[in-house]
Computed example of a mutant assay.
Amino acid sequence: MENTNDTADTNFILLGLFNHTQLHLFLFAMVLMIFIISLMANSIMIILIHIEPRLHTPMYFLLSQLSLMDMMLVTTIVPKMATSYLVDSRSISRTGCGAQIFLFLTLGGGECFLLAAMSYDRYVAICHPLRYAILMNRRLYLLMTAGSWLLGGVDGLMQASATLSFPYCHSREINHFFCEAPSLVRLACADTKMFEFFMYACCILMLLIPLALILASYSLILVAVLHMQSTAARKKAFTTCSSHLAVVGVFFSTIMFIYMRPKSYHSVNRDKVVSAFYTIFTPVLNPLIYTVRNKEVKGSLVRWMKKHFMWYQH
């Protein structure tokens, strides 16, 4: 392809996740269904936590923020992907591409720190129950939430700015279903080694530090649970923590697979499938896992449904 000078108004082309085959049409329909379920489940979770007094605790406030991040994440990715597939117009502007990178990294990075905050909340609740109200006060969990959003936003702004600062003077076809920094940087006609080093540094901050805090919290929780005399208390603690660990395991393992492997180990098609897990599937798993495994949320949901169903009957 002929070299062309980089221009700010030149669009990129997203090659997408699906082709127009029967199998891919079915998979596309499944993604749309998962997207709708994700929006509904996370919306219900946020509303339920807001209106149910029993859920006005730090744990559920943090969970409502997780649901908000998940809703915004799927909304950032899926509508553009679906529109491109349905109308067969896969072009995305430079601004749109930068916005996707910024929003994805803001929400993904914010979620990492929010999951760490949630693990600290569980550590305090299980290991220091009598001091919970003091150690996990309103000011602290609001600072944790604001810090999660802020750190995610700073990471997103830095990486989006750095990614779009490169000249793209050859092919502008991004073999992905959304603008993700590693996929876009592959197209740059400049030396990107410094940026890749910068990206690894960001990953250490945004992934490994929260993960280390989560593992430390749950190691201490495990020790405390094993020393519990009450079988019922031990079972409740394991149930609550296993739900959180399931969310953490899926989210961190998939996102680290993309961002922390050497460049030589990357496979474009495999990366797209793995990216689908933390951008499309994890946001629907979070509310389902927390609802199914949490008696308080299930009880509140049943009461809310009964109340509205009886109101409808009258």
Rank of each mutant, 00 (worst) to 15 (best):
N5F: 07
N5S: 10
T7K: 15
L14T: 04
H20L: 08
L23S: 10
F26E: 10
L27I: 07
V31R: 01
M33E: 03
I34E: 06
I37W: 02
S38H: 00
L39S: 07
L39P: 02
M40W: 05
N42H: 02
I49Y: 01
I49C: 02
H50V: 00
P53F: 01
P53M: 05
P53L: 03
R54H: 09
R54F: 03
L55P: 03
P58H: 03
L63N: 11
L66R: 00
D70S: 11
T75W: 04
T75P: 02
T75Q: 07
I77E: 01
V78R: 00
V78T: 11
V78G: 02
M81S: 05
T83S: 11
S84P: 00
S84R: 08
Y85K: 02
R90D: 04
S91V: 08
I92G: 00
I92E: 03
G98H: 00
F102D: 00
T106K: 04
T106Y: 03
G109F: 04
G109M: 05
G109I: 06
G110D: 02
F113Y: 15
F113L: 15
A116C: 00
S119L: 08
D121L: 01
R122H: 14
C127Y: 05
L130Q: 15
A133V: 04
I134A: 05
N137A: 13
L140G: 04
M144R: 09
G147V: 01
W149G: 05
V154H: 04
G156L: 04
M158S: 10
Q159L: 15
F166S: 03
P167I: 03
P167R: 06
Y168F: 13
Y168A: 03
C169V: 14
H170E: 15
S171P: 08
N175T: 13
H176D: 14
F178D: 04
F178H: 09
C179H: 11
A181H: 13
C189L: 09
A190D: 13
M194L: 12
E196R: 08
F197I: 13
F198P: 01
L208Y: 14
L211T: 02
I214V: 11
I214P: 00
Y218I: 06
S219Q: 10
S219R: 09
L222A: 10
A224S: 15
L226I: 14
H227R: 13
Q229W: 01
R234E: 13
R234C: 13
C241V: 07
S242W: 13
S242Y: 15
H244F: 08
L245N: 05
A246V: 11
V247Y: 06
F251M: 14
S253T: 12
M256E: 13
R261V: 06
P262T: 11
S264Y: 04
H266L: 03
S267N: 13
N269M: 11
D271F: 01
V273L: 15
A276Y: 07
T279W: 00
V284L: 02
N286F: 09
P287D: 06
P287I: 01
L301V: 00
Q313E: 10
